[in-house]
Computed example of a mutant assay.
Amino acid sequence: MWTKDMELFYPNTLLETGHDILFFWVARMVFFGQKLLGKLPFKQVYLHAMVRDAHGRKMSKSLGNVIDPMDVINGITLQDLNKQLDENSNLDPREIAKAKEGQKHDYPQGIPECGTDALRFALCAYTAQGRDINLDVLRVNGYRNFCNKLWNATKFAMMNIGKDFKPHESLNCLQSMVKTARQKCKAQAIAPPSSSNNIKYSDHCSSRLSELNEKFENFSYINGFMPTQDDISIIQRLEEVGSSVSQYPHVLRWYCHMASFSQAERDSFTKASGTPLVSTIECGEVRHA
């Protein structure tokens, strides 16, 4: 007999389930729905990824390796995890002892508090990899740290942009501004030497730029991974002679990156070390015809 609830909730549109019970339960629901009610219980079936433990085993009460999402969100101690096995499990005492050993191995300090956002982020990241999720709580905790960094970065930005800040009307406007700035920087970097100076590049210039290009292939700056006054000195020499670096991709990347620093930031760089490459580089000879 059809009731108001049946008319309201049957049939549904979508069923969400795992592929492991596709023929055990989903097929039965379809059979009995057609046989008893004459209608399919749903039109679409969404098969989500299977959540397994960190070792790839299916989470099962019989194995005692089930992770309660609330425990990941709020955190739980190892003692409370063991207590859940004693109170909520119908396992054989030997299996309970085995499950407790597994909990002690996987969560010696318990499960840290990860929060809702980190758990959602982790499940979304895992789902992109395939249909099985080997849920590692340490990875969820890592995403918690990542979300915390995003929060702190946003909070720092909001503190410094001022009350009069107005966001761009659209993302396209912001992208256009960034694109224009990059094109301007690149145009300055690859601009050919002024024809009025009749500059001719010597083999010595090419060899030095090649040497720079090889260095910047492995390092961000002339002295490693921190900018110094040596970088400023090289940029000044490149600009003095109007040298083109378009044929040297790593030098071009370094040049565009250095151009993004303000004068105040450049002044704060550590003192130049006077490396041989800086002291001997000659980027060109100005010869008058």
Rank of each mutant, 00 (worst) to 15 (best):
L37H: 14
K166Q: 15
Y255I: 05
I281E: 01
V241H: 09
L47E: 12
L36E: 07
V278M: 09
I73Y: 03
E282C: 13
L36K: 10
S62W: 03
H250R: 06
F24E: 10
V286H: 03
T116A: 07
N65I: 04
V278K: 13
A191H: 07
S246C: 11
M29L: 10
A54V: 10
G38D: 12
F23M: 13
I281V: 10
Q79I: 11
N160F: 04
M159E: 15
S195N: 10
L138N: 12
S220W: 02
L85M: 02
D136S: 09
R253D: 15
I235S: 04
Q263A: 15
F121V: 06
I111G: 00
C124R: 06
W254P: 06
W2D: 06
C114A: 05
A272D: 09
Q188L: 13
S246A: 15
L150M: 13
N198L: 01
I67M: 08
E265L: 12
N152G: 09
L85H: 04
D106E: 02
G242K: 11
P11S: 06
Q109I: 02
N145C: 04
T127W: 03
R120Y: 00
L277W: 02
L22M: 09
M1C: 05
T127H: 05
F32G: 09
Y10A: 08
L209S: 04
K39Q: 12
K100W: 10
D86G: 03
K179P: 04
F23R: 09
R28L: 07
C283W: 01
I96S: 00
L36C: 04
Y221P: 07
K186L: 09
Y107T: 03
C147K: 08
M6S: 06
G142V: 02
L171T: 15
G130C: 01
V178Q: 12
W254D: 11
L135Q: 01
S210M: 10
F156A: 15
D203G: 11
Y126H: 08
H250M: 09
M177T: 12
S195E: 12
P93R: 03
A118M: 00
K61G: 05
K61A: 08
A49H: 05
A125S: 01
L37F: 15
L47N: 14
V45H: 03
N223T: 15
K83D: 10
